[in-house]
Design a protein around this nucleic acid. Structure first.
Lengths: 209, 209
DNA sequence: TCTACAATCACATGAATATGGGATATAGGC
DNA sequence: GCCTATATCCCATATTCATGTGATTGTAGA
């Protein structure tokens, strides 16, 4: 029996979900709310809900902030986002807030039910387009031509910079003069169009090199 | 009609997949191979396959390296990994190599077929456990206690450092003396047990702050 | 032979960073 | 009142970084 809370501001959708889920025999619908505030004001039950179906675009406190707030009170609850938003920004905001599922709002009720069950069973249900955006986060970057213009030596030095080595330390590692290191670093800055170690490091850690 | 290539070293599985897919009427099975080398030696068709079903643990060239190599020749092909490996390392290696789907090897044939279709339609099919590991990559980190020991001012200064601001520039932004900025940075280093700007920046970009 | 690139090294200079010492003010707790 | 924490500011010094200038050697290709 999966205990479920719904937070959705559009009446038709919230009522449609409520009517549907209160007749599912493996689901216990605890309550439905039109805002995060309404949830905190009116949810008085002494159990930690298994799953929240959560909209993002809520009045007052957003669904993103709401996930964070609710998760502080109920750290074991899972959040299935049901949203019109398909943009990578929103998707990642929700995931970074702690959501473990994300469906687009036109998903049929039966499939939402399937997602709730999958979520409870340890999966991470996502609409196909959403899954694709999530995967895209890991795909090889196109701008790795930056990496192609650096010589092997220059790449090695970038790696040492990222690890926090000073010029002197790098020179000791590579058995070169510190002047050589400076020379290489100058070339790296020129090729990458940057002017500081920090810029090289952030580019590297962001996967742009 | 989805054009499909299978690369799988275990005979029973490869033959099972082949027998199954050659009778699917919306799938055109182009060929099946037991290694990446076999694919490159024996795939002579003049079309770019839509989808590869790819094992990771192949003899000789691994499936991961194979994805990269094949993707250079066929940049538009999609890769559905079918693997016994469930570890985050392997999953992310595959995704970073360019895979856009990942199923565990005990997935029933019908569901593999569904995944192929979903992949062709722009989704990113994943076994539930795999999706969960992928999502987990985005979840809030537990070690943010480092972030809790910094004062709001110190966090603000960390953000400026990450953005590449010099002490002088930060002092101008905050309307403080540069001495104030140095003082705060000294405290930040002490709290984070580091000795350089680089260490602060890498900790921040790695999500440890 | 010439050019381009990569790698090595040097010198000089100014700016930026890191660290040690110090001071004052405010707020809260004991 | 004392202590701690936070924030502001100062001084001094040494180290590191960034940039400009210059040089040499080796390799590859036209």
């Amino acid at each position: 029996m999966i205990s479920l809370v719904i937070v959705e501001d559009i009446n038709e959708i919230r009522n449609g979900l409520s009517e549907f889920f209160k007749f599912q025999e493996d689901i216990l619908l605890l309550s439905a709310h039109n805002s995060i505030k309404d949830f905190f004001d009116n949810f008085n039950q002494d159990i930690e809900p298994d799953i929240f179906i959560m909209d993002i675009g809520l009045p007052g406190i957003s669904g993103i902030a709401g996930i964070k707030m609710i998760k502080e009170k109920y750290p074991n609850s899972d959040f299935l986002v049901l949203s019109i938003y398909e943009s990578e920004d929103k998707v990642f905001d929700a995931l970074c807030a702690g959501a473990t599922g994300y469906l687009i709002k036109n998903t049929p009720l039966e499939k939402i039910k399937d997602a709730v069950v999958e979520l409870k069973n340890g999966g991470a249900p996502m609409s196909p387009k959403i899954a694709r955006k999530v995967i895209h986060h890991f795909s090889p970057k196109k701008q790795s031509n930056l990496n192609e213009i650096l010589t092997p030596k220059e790449k090695e030095i970038v790696n040492y910079l990222v690890e926090g080595f000073s010029y002197k330390q790098i020179s000791e590692q590579l058995n070169n003069s510190i002047e050589t290191i400076r020379h290489h670093i100058k070339n790296i800055y020129k090729k990458l169009h940057v002017n500081s170690k920090t810029e090289v490091i952030t580019k590297s850690l962001k996967g742009e090199i």
